Computed example of a mutant assay.
Amino acid sequence: MKQGIYTIIEHTPLTKDVYRMVLSGDTSAMTMPGQFVEISLPGFFLRRPISVCDYDEKTITLIYKVVGQGTDALSQMKEGESLDMLVGLGHGFDAGKSGDAPLLVGGGVGVPPLFNLARKLIAAGRDVTVILGFNKADEIFYAREFEEIGARVLVTTVDGSVGVKGFVTDALPEHFSYVYSCGPMPMLRALYKAAQGKGGEFSLEERMGCGFGACMGCSIMTKEGSRRVCKDGPVFDKEVLEWQI
């Protein structure tokens, strides 16, 4: 983890409520896909946790949805302004477990943390399939970006306006070596049942306080006891999670 000041160099809407923000600054604390940052916003006591979509030696890309006052304030910020951020938080995805044909499944704002993972897997020669699940056509984002880096992309919409009608589990390929996923818990539960017998890692969406394990506010019960989503996760082996609750 590292605290620093990051400058907004790009800030654009992707949909009505979803924004893409690119910031320049020190990215040395980023060590794996699936980590997140905590953003300090003027006038707000708690930092806001945002998953990292992508990063390189000089920039961090965030994609977030406006869901409250904090993210609304974030959406008003302009290029050239700066943010105080904690970077390199959490335990991310282990790309080394993927096998030859990994499946990446994202639902809504669970899509962004899968992008850097897909890029790394494709660079390693893996045959990557990505399923992106949304409610309707005007909520879709980043399908083209996944295709541009070489992933095979399937889109599902609940209303059937684009791609496969239904949920992400309605588009599962017959063969895949390992599954990585991020999204709401009902989606993850359904995916767990549909991917029985396959290894996998799921990233959980959980409300957080400190973001680095001190407050214990994001603790969940697993088969290995109580774990902190911010520190021990947000990525967990899918077999460790307590799916009956």
Rank of each mutant, 00 (worst) to 15 (best):
N135G: 06
F141Q: 06
A123P: 09
I140T: 00
K120Q: 15
R119Q: 15
I140V: 11
F141H: 07
N116G: 08
P112C: 09
V105R: 05
D127V: 02
G125D: 10
G110M: 10
A101T: 15
D138G: 01
D138I: 00
L104K: 12
A124T: 02
F141K: 07
L132C: 09
N135D: 13
A118Y: 13
K136N: 14
L121K: 04
V111A: 00
R119T: 00
A124H: 07
N116I: 08
T129N: 07
I140E: 04
L103C: 08
N116Y: 15
E139D: 15
G107L: 11
G125R: 11
A118Q: 09
E139F: 01
V128N: 10
K120M: 14
F115C: 05
D138P: 06
L103D: 06
A101Q: 14
L104C: 05
P102C: 06
A118H: 07
I140M: 08
V130R: 11
L117P: 00
Y142H: 12
R119I: 02
A137L: 10
V130K: 05
G125Q: 03
G107Q: 09
A124M: 13
R119A: 13
G108P: 09
T129Y: 06
N135W: 10
V111G: 04
P112S: 05
F115A: 01
L117N: 02
G133P: 02
P102R: 11
L117H: 02
L132Q: 11
R126T: 00
T129R: 06
R126F: 02
P102W: 05
F141S: 03
G133Y: 00
G107I: 04
A123M: 14
V128M: 00
L103A: 09
V128I: 08
P112F: 14
L104D: 13
K120E: 15
V109N: 01
A137Y: 11
P102D: 12
A123E: 15
N135K: 13
R126A: 10
G106L: 04
K136W: 10
D127C: 05
D138C: 01
N135C: 05
V111P: 12
K136A: 09
R119H: 10
Y142D: 04
F115P: 03
I140Q: 01
G133N: 05
D138N: 13
R119V: 06
K120N: 13
L104H: 11
G107D: 14
K136G: 04
Y142V: 00
G106T: 03
K136L: 08
A101S: 15
T129S: 12
D138Y: 14
I122F: 02
V128F: 14
R119G: 00
R126I: 01
G106W: 10
K136R: 15
D138A: 08
V128K: 02
D127R: 14
F115H: 08
L114V: 03
A118G: 13
P102Q: 13
E139P: 05
L117K: 04
A123Y: 05
R126V: 00
L117F: 05
G133S: 06
